[in-house]
Design a binder for these strands. Structure first.
Lengths: 188, 188
DNA sequence: GGCGAGTGTTCCATAAACGGAACGCTATCG
DNA sequence: CGATAGCGTTCCGTTTATGGAACACTCGCC
């Protein structure tokens, strides 16, 4: 899903076309869907033709009536699982999921570390902890000066409020899951 | 207007919370993110506090700057995202990824354990190891007779070649990631 | 042919989302 | 100390998304 770009006219037309296709697939008219979703016909018409910039409320109402996840309206059929990649010198990371729960927010990444390169990450805010579980390969990670060697089938964690590094030992790239846990500061 | 769709005040607050969490994890201020995304500070502030009903354009701009798919801002984990799910008496699991690599097959699941119920899994073939990282709640897992308590922000692993159990301690459900590693050829 | 019920689009007043400029606040500095 | 810079929130005029109504059009029916 290449949604990193801005909300362009093409994105609007593509989203509108997907809505129209799903509606046609269900054999219901524009007026009918608008009535069921509780939005104006003008709104739905403009949305399907790509001449509007809908609000979250409108999108939710329509996706709900079509019975599809919102991601299906907004993403290209190319790959709902292909999430954007964050690339560093040695590390390529894909965000698998992220949520907050209680006073803690969590991000789960899939990680691949290329061999032969060392990547240093700057310090995160205090209280951030990273958890690494290695699928294959051997990783050397952790805070600068306190390296931890993690082999396939092992896991490790470290406070990431200081600079820390990622590297793959040996020739084989490292595949792992990285979980970043971050306590939220109290919100007024 | 009436809450005719899933976009309620709670959804707005939840979405805002996810944005705020992702922003905090990246260590950038509200002003900074607003400037990078090209939206007004008032817009972002109202969005994070759940007092606005953002447009697709605004959401795209912010998701793009955070480097996450838009669906991750809008959808609840375990919600409308259509990922194959495996349900047991106490455990609901969704496969996040799976691959084989060097004679070892690895599967990464998102796990939710409901409180008040104990689930027992039969023994897997020899050599299978499970790794659990808990996001929130407190889990009691592991081989029968050797229970391990894993609190939020901890991880544990156990050989699963004997029957093993999953349970949530306390009232809160447990969210965690479970990694199952099994060699393609029997070990030992 | 006329007629009614349906379609999707366009017009328009209203409601609300937008961004800029204030605000109060907390740190940090000279 | 006061000055400055940053933070997140609130105020406010402008922009724009919204839904109802009117529109032109296509059917099925008598």
């Amino acid at each position: 899903m290449e949604n990193s770009g801005p909300w362009s006219a093409e994105a609007a037309v593509a989203t509108g076309g997907r809505i129209r296709a799903l509606r046609a697939q269900r054999g219901i008219s524009l007026s009918e869907l608008a009535r069921r979703a509780g939005v104006g016909k003008a709104t739905l018409s403009g949305l399907e033709t790509g001449t509007r910039n809908p609000t979250a409320e409108t999108l939710y109402a329509i996706a709900g009536q079509l019975g599809v996840p919102l991601a299906m309206l907004l993403s290209t059929p190319g790959g709902p699982l292909s999430v954007p990649e964050v690339r560093g010198t040695a590390v390529a990371a894909q965000l698998l999921e992220a949520f907050q729960d209680g006073g803690v927010s969590t991000e789960l990444y899939r990680l691949e570390i290329r061999p032969g390169v060392l990547q240093t990450s700057p310090a995160h805010p205090a209280g951030v902890v990273e958890y690494l579980t290695v699928f294959s390969g051997t990783a050397q990670v952790g805070r600068v000066g306190e390296p931890i060697v993690v082999r396939a089938g092992e896991h490790a964690s470290w406070d990431s409020d200081t600079p820390h590094t990622y590297a793959a030992l040996g020739d084989e790239p490292v595949r792992a899951s990285l979980l970043i846990r971050h306590p939220l500061e109290p919100v007024g």
